[in-house]
Design a protein around this nucleic acid. Structure first.
Lengths: 207, 207
DNA sequence: CTATAATACGAGCGATTGCTCGCATTCTCC
DNA sequence: GGAGAATGCGAGCAATCGCTCGTATTATAG
């Protein structure tokens, strides 16, 4: 276990109170990101908000970036849970019904913890270990491509990579822009209209 | 002219050497953003790179943010010059030809000073006075809506706001994602295929 | 109970940041 | 040429940053 002498145990926690500390840190980071923004999220500030000392913070996270990455990861996982479930639900449905559902889910997904979502999208520089956290976009792409593969007979293209790229990018962008740059609270009416249009866009393209 | 006593002349330059200084500062900022990234762009570092003292920097720019905003502004203006020209060129063309051209221009526009473009897109937190620099997106939206208005007879919708939103958002996202997350250098072949697909997507949607 | 490991603490270090201010230099205009 | 305005300079301050390390506390095992 203790490979390195006895310094730098910077990793897993075995006792219960340690897990509590780790959770408190991640949650405090998320709270600060939302309430005060990215630049105010210093390690000292995070530790204070978590009710924990800086020393303890550095026992579990080697840097501020790692902490932020943990928050992003958690958020992305929450989104991917919803998205993955939707793909499963939709797997055997025809293109038009499937796309409609997926568009609706994309909008829902962007509304999970919206204030945190906004901060992550607008304030976090994609730098260092935060660079690749977009990788979850690739998962969505893969799921969509798999769906297309199973419904190839309904499509007019054979270039599934291109079709998946165009579809996923468009849907994601429409949901993203509508939720972030639109009115604070999207009315049910607006959402319905948006779903209609986006569905028409993508379905018309696919077949 | 000198409203406030004689402190804080933090504004316009009248002599030639001052304009040189201001230019050097903006250019140095852009260089550092590209070569070293956003966090390395401190005021001291920028002044050094510009061959100017920090004191002089603060005569013309009240903060680091203002300097970065100036760089963003310059870049956005370069993009908008291309985009505006394209809209003029396309004003009297039918939807299919027009959209094809606009898609191509969107991709071109994303390749103006690509390394700077990437930094601005990935590393700059949309915070403080950097928050609203996205406003140039609205210009594109307005131009597109005006085009649609003049070609209403070719469309199947009457909701031009929605149509413009969906079209502009999709085109912009496809260009953005292809250029930034795709291969380093897009081959002419790939670009042509992408233009084809995006055109099909949007034209199929519009009429 | 005791020895040892795991966890928590927090003062404080060295580095860096954004920025000021008093002073030096250069330009403009009479 | 000379006075005053415009411009340029840069040492250095106060604040903050990420982070370490010696020590105190608590849990676990024998």
């Amino acid at each position: 276990m203790a490979r390195k002498p006895l310094t730098k145990p910077r990793k897993t926690a075995t006792q219960e109170r340690a897990r509590v500390t780790v959770d408190a840190l991640v949650e405090a980071t998320a709270r600060i990101l939302v309430k005060e923004g990215f630049d105010k999220a210093s390690t000292n500030r995070i530790a204070e908000e978590a009710g924990v000392s800086v020393g303890s913070l550095y026992q579990y996270y080697p840097s501020k970036e790692a902490l932020v990455a943990a928050v992003i990861d958690r958020h992305n996982r929450a989104i991917m849970r919803v998205v993955t479930a939707a793909f499963a639900e939709v797997a055997s449905q025809p293109v038009d019904k499937a796309v409609r559902r997926l568009v609706a889910v994309a909008i829902e997904a962007h509304q999970i913890d919206p204030r945190l979502h906004r901060v992550l999208a607008e304030q976090i520089p994609r730098t260092g270990r935060l660079a690749d956290v977009e990788a979850f976009g690739r998962q969505t792409y893969a799921l969509f491509r798999a769906y297309l593969e199973a419904h190839g007979d309904e499509l007019r293209t054979t270039d599934l990579d291109m079709a998946a790229f165009v579809s996923v990018t468009s849907i994601e962008a429409l949901a993203h822009t509508a939720v972030l740059h639109g009115p604070q609270k999207l009315s049910g009416e607006t959402v319905r209209a948006l779903v209609d249009e986006a569905t028409r866009l993508v379905v018309g393209y696919l077949r």
